[in-house]
């Protein structure tokens, strides 16, 4: 590995030469909820940052109707990566959940396996819009509650499910985004859920 790495620009770790299938999972949530922390804790590379610049005219955001001319918005997002085996590599994208960024969703994240909605119980309002959009879009998701140390209210998962009006079939779990094992469990919960959905589809005539 050492000789290969030294030929590359500092810090870059190459994929296996047999890598052929890129997969996507999106971590979505409000400001400061722990998206980057979660990506970092499970990623094999330091999270990288990139941006897309969108011209909002013609993107189909009906809320902006009536506005003449174009507005340009730059949306930055970070990502990490997990090599699942020699052929498959999973990319994790941390995406802002605020309403004004969602015109990007179709464009950047089509073809995602599914999503994790990261929730901070001190600011649960930030999660409603993301959950609503994912349901509307038909993207399967799980909800992970990132417990911060000063979360004094200590809501139970049942209370949180009620507050978010989450249907019973959507998995809801707790996590600590700083801990690798915990981040990994969140991803496994999501993919387990996706697997169940796929099996149900495939066995329904």
């Amino acid at each position: 590995m050492g000789s290969v790495t030294s030929e590359l620009p500092a810090g870059r770790t190459p994929l296996a030469d047999a890598a052929e299938t890129g997969l996507k999972i999106v971590i979505v949530g409000g400001f400061g909820v722990g998206k980057t922390t979660l990506v970092r804790s499970v990623s094999e590379i330091r999270p990288l940052n990139t941006e897309e610049v969108m011209t909002q005219a013609g993107v189909g955001v009906d809320e902006t109707s009536g506005v003449a001319g174009k507005t340009t918005t730059t949306v930055a997002f970070d990502f990490g990566r997990i090599s699942l085996n020699e052929r498959m590599v999973l990319y994790l994208f941390g995406a802002p959940g605020q309403e004004r960024f969602w015109f990007l969703w179709d464009r950047l994240f089509s073809g995602t396996l599914g999503a994790v909605v990261l929730v901070d119980t001190r600011r649960m309002d930030d999660s409603w819009y993301a959950i609503d959009r994912l349901e509307h879009h038909g993207t399967p998701f799980v909800v992970a509650v990132n417990r911060f140390d000063d979360d004094s209210a200590g809501h139970s998962l049942d209370e949180i499910r009620q507050a978010l009006a989450l249907p019973p079939h959507v998995p809801l779990i707790e996590c600590d985004a700083r801990v690798r094992r915990s981040g990994k469990d969140v991803l496994i919960t999501l993919v387990d859920h996706l697997y169940d959905l796929a099996m149900a589809r495939e066995t329904t005539p």
């Binding site: 890598a19 052929e20 299938t21 890129g22 997969l23 996507k24 997990i82 090599s83 699942l84 085996n85 498959m88 999973l90 179709d106 089509s110 073809g111 396996l113 879009h137 038909g138 993207t139 399967p140 990994k184 991803l187 496994i188 993919v191 387990d192 996706l194 697997y195 959905l197 796929a198 099996m199 589809r201 495939e202």
Partner: peptide, 26 residues
């Protein structure tokens, strides 16, 4: 090398693919 699942938003991944993903994560 284009991703298999990205042709359309509606094409959901099959269970065989997801099983491989699970195996890799575990």
């Amino acid at each position: 090398r284009h991703p298999r699942a990205a042709e359309s938003v509606a094409s959901l991944p099959d269970s065989a693919l997801l099983k491989e993903v699970l195996h890799g994560l575990r």
